[in-house]
Simulated assay, not measured.
Amino acid sequence: MIKKDLALQLAPRVIDMVRARSMKAGEPLREQTFAQALGVSRSPIRRVFALLAEWDLAIQEPNRGYFLKQGAGQIQEAAVPCASDPFEDFYLRVVDDILSGEIPAHFFEAQLLRRYEVPRGQLLKVLNRLAGEAMVERKPGQGWGLKDFVHSTQAHIHSYRFRMAIEPAALLEPGYQVNHAAFAQARQQQQALIDGEIQTLSRAQLFQLGAQFHEMIVQCSGNVFFIDAIRHQNQLRRFMGYKANIDRTRLKAQCQEHIHLLDLIESDRREEAAQFLWRHLDQVGRLKTDQRAVPEESQI
């Protein structure tokens, strides 16, 4: 039962990755890819794949492994049972302490073990996940260090300036093709946020929805360099998005802008959409840069 509980805890995060990568039906589910991204071994990921097969979201082929049975745009939230995740709670607690300056730029495992009073294995899972997200790194010899951009306002500005360069450009790619199923799901998600989910979802969930939205927009360009770039940016900005105590009312306007962007793209007004997306990123980037001194909760 314990093993299945862990798989249930990991399953929503695996589904999030499937959606973030806009994976299609028939694509292989690779254990090493998901295990490395989630900071766990391959065994629990294998059990997650088995659960996906039980839920009719994946299929196992003898001697070949698991493959998606439904594409990212077809998977509904209700298809994935919810489960509490104490590991995620502990992970976010460490994140909060890093962002608030409670954990120094260079630290040792012993310091955190005394601080949190948790088993070393549990702490290492969190640190390995943070390392996989490019937020911390193991120092030569002993100890760990935060990446320089974690507390850097300048890096935050540069991240948005980079996104302002690549995301609108992706919309203007000659091979851009709208994924209507993914667009429809994104529209439903943004409307659900406007209708009240902004106030009820966790900060991790809010961030994930925002990251998925922007990656989906870029994914339709078919340009692997743009797609890789936005995925890397989402990985980096995840940490910047885990701030607490934000006034979530401003997120409603951002969701409305997301829906308007979908409208522009689907009506084949991609040049106008590119200009709108540039302004959207510029405005949001400036707002969040101004609020860097105040804890934030999510970046959508």
Rank of each mutant, 00 (worst) to 15 (best):
L52C: 08
G145E: 10
S202G: 12
L124C: 06
S202Q: 14
F225V: 11
S159N: 08
Q60P: 00
A11W: 05
W144F: 03
R238W: 15
V18Y: 04
I265E: 00
Q70W: 03
I103Q: 06
L251S: 09
A72S: 12
T249M: 05
D290M: 15
Q154A: 14
G175Q: 09
H180P: 05
K69L: 15
R203E: 11
R120M: 10
A192I: 06
R269T: 09
I194S: 14
I45Q: 03
Y160E: 04
R270E: 11
Q142W: 01
C220S: 02
K24S: 10
F276L: 14
P28F: 00
E215N: 14
V40E: 05
L51C: 12
L172V: 06
Q189L: 06
F239P: 06
Q283H: 09
A293M: 12
A274W: 00
L201P: 04
G121P: 08
I198K: 00
R292P: 05
Q32Y: 00
D263Y: 01
H280G: 08
R46K: 11
G145Y: 12
A131E: 15
V284E: 05
A7Q: 10
R114E: 15
E257V: 04
E197R: 13
D148C: 00
G145V: 04
N234M: 01
D56F: 01
V94A: 04
L8N: 12
K243H: 15
A83L: 07
P119C: 06
R238F: 12
L10P: 11
A253T: 15
T289M: 09
T153R: 14
R46D: 13
V48H: 00
I265G: 07
F49V: 09
R138S: 01
S22M: 09
G141L: 01
R248I: 12
N234D: 03
F87D: 07
A211Q: 12
S152T: 13
